[in-house]
Amino acid sequence: MKTLGVLLCLLTATAAAVPAAVPAAAPVPAAVPAAASVLGPAAVPGPASAYAHVFYVSITRVKWNVDVARLDVSVRIFTDDLEEAIVAKGGPRLRLWTGQAHADRDRHVSDYLASRLAFRVNGVDRQLTYAGMEDALDATACLVQITGVDRVETIEVENRILIEMFDTQANVMRFEIGGERKYVNLSKKTVTGTVRFGS
């Protein structure tokens, strides 16, 4: 009977905790960074949280903006992983989306992306222009652009994001070019992919 009591306590706690948390956090955007930062780098020293529920994925979207002849690239990376990777390369702890964010954060993020991501459009290597970043809760959306793209036939891409950190990192790439949508799923095993359009 003692076990039953413990069990019931656990179940009650579980049932009570979930709905209670929902209304408190849902409508107030200001509550989100506070909640997210509990697991953030400030709270967890060392390379990773002790918790085992890991999910190593980044999603990169590449969209052709035909009006301005530009490829808009948005790379969503988990903020804690991104910061760890920059520290592992010898950079500072950026503390993104906190009150003490590093002043040079844009340069470090931009350098990291440039070292991990490469595009060749229609057979020509193209420079990435860093265009800022946005807070996406647990993730950061890093924005880069490739200008002067007035047609897209092939895109060869090399994506090494976070593979130096995690063996199971998956880097999903989604291309949206003139109504055509294609996907490539890259990882440590396969860091490059080619997509063709308009054929």
């Binding site: 656990l10 706690a13 579980t14 905790a17 979930v18 948390a21 929902v22 956090a25 849902a26 989100v32 909640a35 997210a36 509990v38 697991l39 918790y51 529920h53 647990d138």
Partner: peptide, 16 residues
């Protein structure tokens, strides 16, 4: 975005 539960709470509940 219809529910939002803090990650740390969920990470406690899962082992429970």
């Amino acid at each position: 975005r219809l529910v939002l539960v803090p990650t740390d709470l969920v990470e406690t509940l899962i082992p429970v």
